[in-house]
Amino acid sequence: MERVKTIALNVAVAAIISLLLLWGATLYRQHVQYEKGEQGMRAGNYPAAVAGYESAIHMYTPGSPLVESSAQKLWGLGQAMEGGGDVKGALIAYRTLRSSFYAIAWIYSPGTEWIAKCDAKIAALVPKQQGP
């Protein structure tokens, strides 16, 4: 019986360590992707900024402020493009934001308020879109 307890304890410790390492690696990659979004913004490369922020959201880690910050940056990009008359670019930003939160939904679905906001913006912009 003592041997079973030892094995169970070892398995539990290994599982906890594995989860912590996975969480840490994901958090690190999230920071890297967020910084790529920031670099894209600084360079005026909006496709790179959108891709970086999108990837940062995909690297969802509970409690990380970068998810919310990335969402705000994508929303801001969409608003800026919309304000500048770039309906296609705005739709890309809003759709990217929405799909990022759909992609990370599992047991818990974060970002439902962002999805609702994006749905409203997309519904308003699609009729204004010219061409495919």
Rank of each mutant, 00 (worst) to 15 (best):
W75D: 15
R3T: 13
G85E: 15
I92T: 02
I16P: 04
V4E: 12
V67M: 10
V11P: 02
I16E: 04
A123S: 12
Q72A: 06
R29N: 09
I104A: 07
A116L: 05
Y46M: 15
P65D: 00
Q30D: 03
S69G: 12
A51E: 07
V32I: 07
P62Y: 00
E68N: 11
Y94F: 12
Q130P: 08
A12I: 14
R98K: 07
A116V: 14
L27R: 04
A103R: 01
V11K: 10
Y108L: 06
T26R: 07
Y60L: 08
V32K: 13
G131A: 11
A120P: 14
M81V: 05
L19M: 10
D119M: 05
E35A: 06
H58N: 15
L97P: 12
L27G: 02
G52N: 05
Y53A: 04
L77F: 10
P132L: 12
L22C: 13
W106Q: 02
M1Y: 11
C118L: 09
N45V: 03
E35T: 15
H31C: 13
Y108M: 02
A14C: 15
W114P: 03
A80P: 12
S64Y: 09
Q130V: 14
P127S: 10
P127W: 15
G40I: 11
I104F: 06
K5S: 11
A51G: 02
V67R: 01
M41N: 09
G52K: 09
V11E: 11
T6A: 11
S99Y: 10
T96I: 07
K128C: 07
P47A: 05
W23F: 10
T6R: 07
F101Q: 01
Q30F: 03
A43W: 11
E113M: 02
E35P: 01
T61C: 08
V4T: 10
P110D: 07
Y53I: 00
G83L: 01
A56Q: 03
L27P: 02
L9T: 12
I16F: 07
P110E: 01
G76T: 13
Q79E: 10
P127T: 11
R98Q: 07
R3Q: 10
E2Y: 08
A90M: 05
G76N: 15
A49M: 01
L22K: 07
Y34H: 03
R98I: 00
E38K: 02
A71K: 11
S64F: 04
L125N: 01
P132E: 13
P132V: 04
G40K: 03
Y94V: 08
G84E: 07
S18R: 02
A43L: 11
A103H: 04
G76M: 13
K88G: 02
L9N: 07
A71N: 00
A123F: 06
E82K: 08
M1D: 09
P62K: 02
P65V: 06
S64M: 13
V67E: 11
T112K: 04
A123Y: 09
A14T: 14
I104K: 10
T96N: 10
K88W: 01
